[in-house]
């Protein structure tokens, strides 16, 4: 199974969940999975938007008690 790193960006506003994901993606290897945890409702849209534009893959997206979990895979 691929490594799955948790990017815990709950309750943070700057630089924010997407910027944290971008920074972590730069350190990740192709095939790695990253799970971004965010309390920003906008993450459910802006993270998939960037992932799709980059050609990476959204594995799953869910919400529980105000925490969004978006799992993505680095594909290139």
């Amino acid at each position: 199974m691929a490594d799955r790193k948790i990017v815990d960006a709950k309750n943070t506003f700057c630089p924010g969940p997407l910027m944290e994901l971008i920074a972590n993606m730069k350190q990740a290897e192709v095939g790695d999975e990253l799970a971004v945890l965010s309390t920003d409702e906008g993450s459910a849209n802006d993270i998939p938007e960037w992932i799709n534009k980059m050609g990476h893959e959204v594995i799953e997206s869910s919400e529980d008690s105000g925490v969004w979990s978006i799992v993505v895979k680095k594909t290139k």
Binding site: F13, C14, P15, G16, L18, I22, G42, D46, E49, W50
Partner: peptide, 10 residues
């Protein structure tokens, strides 16, 4: 700018 708006703080 890297994300989908002009600054990280909305």
């Amino acid at each position: 700018y890297p994300i989908g708006r002009t600054h990280s703080l909305e």
